[in-house]
Amino acid sequence: MSYDPNQGNNPGYNPPQGENPGGYPPPQSQSPEYGYPPPGGYPGSYPPPPQEGYPGGYPPPPGGYPGAYPPPQQGGYAPYGPGGYNEPPQPLPLDEAIQQLPSQYLRVTTKPGANTFAQEKGKAAWNIIWVQLLFLGIVTGILGAISLAITLPNTLNSLNNSHISPSTLEQIKTIYASLPVPFAIGSIFAVIAGFFISTGIYFLIAKAFGGQGTFLQYAYSYLLFEVPLGILSSLVSLVPILGSLAVLAIGIYRIILQIYMTMAVHRLSGGRATLAVLILPIVLIILACVFIIVLVSLLARNISTQQ
């Protein structure tokens, strides 16, 4: 059948099925039951996007629309990566993970942010956690032993001026002189035990605030800043007076990094992550103040009773 252009002006014209001469679509008033666009047509191109489809047209580009799908989970934290949602990296072989640690330490401590930790947490594995813990314990123990050896002569000199008997003084000096080696060995166990206790408490607190991360990711991400900053604190503590101020500044920076890390691992907003990190120190400070007040009041009462 030939196509008559005038038939396009007839609202009742229905073309035979399977026939569309010249590729010309039916009039815009045509019923949608034939699969043609509704009145006004689809903007852009055919086929149309779904009712709640991707922004910017259909079909989506390979890999999806950055930042659009899937949406971030509740809590206000942005998706992985600077440009949108990307799957986190997978754990690395142990030798490769060890080789990447220096660059990870540098990136985490010099470019603080939730996205930085989000891009690293997927590499979490227990083998690299234990390697870092042993390394931190050994280095901390050696630096602690050096610090003890430096302060030991002053301590022994102060004992010489005391009223302690010569035999007792000699025993004390012997004990002090042998302290650096067991101190270094004990530091390894102290670092490991302290790490799991502290991270376990902070992890449970973050969970109570709605955190969604795993303990493995939390422990791994925590070590990414704890290892370099912990070693740096031990080094600067060897410097008299100024070292104490530097340790304080490093401690404050640790808290900031821990907040970012908690945001990334647990998908929490900045406010919730801050509370999850600071609530334990706040409670400890309050308890310390209460203890000091009670202790002072008891001492004052004891003094007044004796008078």
Rank of each mutant, 00 (worst) to 15 (best):
P5S: 11
N6L: 15
N6E: 14
P15Q: 03
P15W: 04
N20Q: 15
P26C: 08
Q30R: 10
Y46D: 09
E52I: 15
P60I: 03
P61W: 04
P61S: 05
G63Y: 09
G64P: 06
Y65D: 11
P72S: 13
P72C: 13
Q74K: 11
G75E: 02
G75N: 04
Y77A: 09
Y80V: 00
P82K: 10
P89M: 06
Q90G: 10
P93W: 14
I98W: 10
I98H: 12
L101F: 00
Y105F: 15
L106C: 07
V108Y: 11
T109H: 08
K111V: 01
K111H: 13
P112E: 11
P112Y: 12
A114N: 07
A118M: 10
G122F: 05
I128S: 02
Q132K: 10
L133E: 02
G141D: 00
G144L: 00
T151I: 10
L152N: 15
L152W: 06
T155Y: 12
N157W: 08
N157C: 11
S158Q: 15
L159S: 06
P166K: 07
S167F: 12
I172N: 08
I175R: 12
I175E: 12
Y176Q: 10
S178Y: 13
P180A: 01
G186E: 03
S187F: 06
I192W: 10
F195M: 07
F195D: 04
T199V: 10
T199I: 05
Y202N: 11
F203Q: 00
F215S: 01
L216P: 02
Y218R: 06
A219W: 02
S221F: 07
L223M: 09
F225N: 03
L229A: 06
I231W: 03
S233E: 05
L235H: 07
L235D: 07
S237W: 04
V239A: 13
V247F: 05
A249Y: 05
I255D: 09
L257F: 04
Y260Q: 06
T262I: 13
H266N: 08
S269H: 03
G270R: 00
R272K: 15
A273V: 08
C289R: 04
C289M: 14
I292W: 07
V296P: 03
I303T: 06
S304Y: 11
S304G: 09
T305R: 12
Q306T: 09
